[in-house]
């Protein structure tokens, strides 16, 4: 029988072990890239080391980046190798690799590998969350409560400013968040109007401020520093202006600041100390405006 002149040329016989080449290239690239990423890139990921929670978040992000790096390397090697090795040749012959579909060995490896990674991340994430809440709001009944004594601070959102009330300091209130260094802080985040989100960036704390809800978050401060606070929930016309700076200061400075605030605060203390039934402000963990004050 005569050969069909229009038929595509038969692919040349290929005895190359493509799988082994890909694996070797992947291992080499991963062995180089993974430690580089872990050492040089991980610590650059926000939010920084402003608090214990921030440090843990940096560690978590570094670990996840380190886990992801070999996966990214595998994809990159596979992609580049495929482009270089499997394509139409100048003679018109199609150079194709061995089929992956139906290869049970590869399928099992893929399923087991991805399952292990996902289960590890789920377990690791849960462990990290249960230690101290990882800087997130946990609602009114927190599950992950760090041990030891904690200083309570109520964070009150209002269109468009956060104020901070200190129950342990006679209920003084300030429009700047000032915290003592090396202290466990229990934040009670709430709102007087719409939904806001309290985000102390460098401290690694973020908690929604919902009206009528006491959202508890924990943070352990470290050394003195200035940090940024901003609202992370679109909350109306001046949402973009709802930010300011907070400070972590040493113990002596904190007590000096508190004394100064107490003096300034003395003028309105009589109004704050009024019982709620007499028109005074409630002073529990959750600040709820009296119903008659809900509209202007």
């Amino acid at each position: 029988m005569a050969a069909n002149p229009n038929a595509a040329p038969a692919p040349p016989s290929d005895r190359t072990n493509h799988g082994m080449r890909v694996v070797v290239a992947w291992l080499v690239l991963s062995a180089i890239a993974t430690p580089l990423v872990a050492v040089f890139v991980g610590h650059l990921i926000p939010p920084g080391n402003g608090s214990s929670q921030g440090t843990e978040q940096v560690f978590d992000n570094t670990l996840m980046l380190t886990v992801i790096t070999p996966i990214l390397c595998l994809l990159a090697v596979f992609f580049v190798y495929g482009l270089r090795s499997f394509h139409a040749s100048s003679s018109g012959a199609v150079l194709d690799g061995p089929p992956l579909r139906g290869d049970s060995q590869i399928q099992i490896l893929w399923i087991v590998g991805t399952s292990v990674i996902v289960l590890f991340l789920a377990g690791f994430g849960t462990f990290e969350l249960l230690q101290n809440g990882a800087g997130g709001g946990q609602g009114p009944d927190p599950i992950a409560v760090p041990g030891g004594q904690k200083m309570q601070v109520q964070v009150i959102g209002q269109q468009w400013q956060f104020t901070y009330r200190y129950p342990s300091l006679g209920g003084i209130e300030s429009n700047q968040l000032v915290l003592p260094a090396d202290t466990d802080v229990e934040l009670h985040v709430t709102s007087l109007d719409v939904i806001h989100s309290f985000w102390a960036y460098e401290l690694g704390v973020k908690a929604d401020a919902n009206p009528g809800v006491d959202n508890v978050a924990y943070v352990k401060t470290k050394s003195p520093q200035v940090f940024h606070v901003r609202c992370a929930e679109l909350c109306g016309l001046w949402h973009g202006y709802m930010y300011n700076n907070g400070r972590v200061v040493d113990s002596a400075q904190f007590h000096s600041w508190a004394s100064q605030q107490e003096k300034l605060y003395a003028a309105i203390k009589p109004f704050m100390d009024k019982p709620e039934a007499d028109g005074g402000a409630p002073f529990g963990h959750t600040y709820l405006p009296a119903p008659e004050r809900r509209a202007g």
């Binding site: 009150i156 209002q158 104020t163 009330r165 209130e173 429009n175 007087l192 109007d193 300034l264 605060y265 003028a267 309105i268 109004f271 704050m272 005074g280 402000a281 600040y287 405006p289 009296a290 008659e292 004050r293 509209a295 202007g296």
Partner: peptide, 18 residues
């Protein structure tokens, strides 16, 4: 009058002599 939601705002601050 309609009242303040947060009595903290009742204290004048930031002007001369607070």
């Amino acid at each position: 009058a309609s009242g303040l939601r947060n009595p903290f705002l009742a204290r004048p601050q930031g002007m001369a002599g607070n």
